[in-house]
Design a protein around this nucleic acid. Structure first.
Lengths: 261, 261
DNA sequence: TAGTGGTCTAGACCACTTT
DNA sequence: AAGTGGTCTAGACCACTAG
């Protein structure tokens, strides 16, 4: 068992750098060097207080910095741990290609099981509502829309929350308005209804989550969200669906392939 | 001048919610409702202490929460302000299409000037180096690579830091190894050298910045980064370049268009 | 019960900005 | 000089987790 001094070093009293930043630096360096690995418990606040000879608030300030950086997570009553990197889900840009819709199951389920994870979908809600200004503009200003909300989980962990919006005149009294729209999902139904899909536009942003998103996705501090808005266009150029998705950024990598010409 | 009570309300002493969270909630709600707008100064710590009748650390905890959420930024000696939303740069998925390379200027410069911004590129560094394991794997395991580093700024604000890696056997003693590779950039040079570009793969992640990235991009707390890794493939299927880009997430929206078939 | 982190107080001194 | 946020101390009590 190495001493804390050999792992964390000591403070430099001549440095201009704030003490809590020096402590955070020491911990960050130890993590980077592999002295603490994913899931390892960091020294407790009391141990750090004793080791560095500072007050508890100074130590907490340092640990708070690491959490903001996404390097550590605290668990009440247990300790502060090096944040485990969850398995990452890769979203390929061809994931909505027509050939992926032939199968009966939802893309999320098929893909997750192939990756050895246990997929769940919950919070299913299907509602008619008045669209926000943004959604309305993207869909060609319908008076009302059908909203389909769901949350995706992998191995019990929420990773994504998505809402699909469709113009109500298009979706009302169709399988799309059912909780389960059937094999191939709503895109398959849209094509059966004569809206052959032509292309999708996707817009990607990243930001820190709102408090509501922290709850819904059970996000640790220091984890941003990826906000993806996808618009589906049919062969006539009509926007037939907008899907608004918020993803836990540490659970995803998005992959796109672009032609050069 | 409305009273603080009318803007922020009062604490609920019967609530289980921590006092600093209640204060953060009050400020967040006031911001959402437009009582404080972008760039506005929030009440000072002293004012909040007096208004809520709590200690300064409690108030600071609340303000710190808002900063972590990306809602506020503090400026030493001046105050805490509602974080201004900078103009967003839209990256279209066809930005590397061949037709955009005919012009003499760099894409970044052309686009920024069209949007009414003042573009700068600095920190130009061109170096031969040994590739990291990740870069090496993407480029087909060259022993050495040419690395081209640069930072992009809009109106004086750093928004993006990028490094291009090319196999050294391909780039050595070519215009690509010059600080200024000439009109159309390195992609134009690659095509002149017989590497007709076929497609690009892009991988997108979002995460909190490292301390070094905070410095380079002058990021406020509560602003994540978008990490984009693009690999360029020539017509023979060879990976001829990997571009590793870190962007201030609040300055970008990435747009992609995907075919449906 | 002992150890952990979460919240909160009431001070102090410092550094930066503005007047 | 006055006001602002930045850092730090030395306590206190609480809530959660573990053995």
């Amino acid at each position: 068992m190495p001493s804390l001094t050999s792992v964390l070093g000591v403070l430099d009293p001549t440095s201009d750098r704030a003490v809590f930043r020096q402590i955070a630096d020491a911990l960050r360096e130890a993590i980077d060097k592999g002295r603490f690995r994913e899931g390892d418990k960091l020294p407790s606040e009391t141990e750090l207080v004793d080791h560095f000879g500072v007050s508890r608030m100074t130590v907490r300030n340092a640990l708070s910095l690491l959490q903001q950086e996404g390097l550590a997570v605290s668990e009440h009553g247990k300790g502060v741990f090096v944040r485990p990197r969850p398995p990452v889900r890769r979203l390929a840009s061809d994931r909505f290609a027509r050939r992926h819709r032939e199968q009966g199951k939802a893309a999320f389920t098929v893909e997750a099981e192939a990756a050895g994870s246990r997929p769940e979908v919950d919070n299913l809600e299907v509602k008619e509502e008045r669209p926000s200004q943004d959604i309305s503009a993207r869909l060609g200003s319908p008076r009302k829309v059908l909203a389909r909300r769901r949350r995706y989980l992998l191995d019990g962990r929420p990773v994504e929350f998505a809402t699909s919006y469709l113009p109500l005149d298009l979706a009302r009294n169709t399988p799309i308005a059912q909780p389960n729209p059937g094999p191939g999902g709503i895109y398959a139904r849209l094509e059966e209804m004569g809206h052959r899909l032509d292309h999708f536009d996707e817009e990607i942003r990243a930001r820190m989550p709102s408090p509501a998103e922290v709850r819904t996705l059970q996000l640790a501090s220091g984890v941003p969200v990826i906000h993806l808005v996808r618009t589906a266009f049919d062969a006539e150029g009509r926007a037939v669906e907008v899907c608004d998705t918020v993803m836990a950024a540490d659970a995803y990598v998005l992959a796109y392939q672009l032609p050069a010409n």
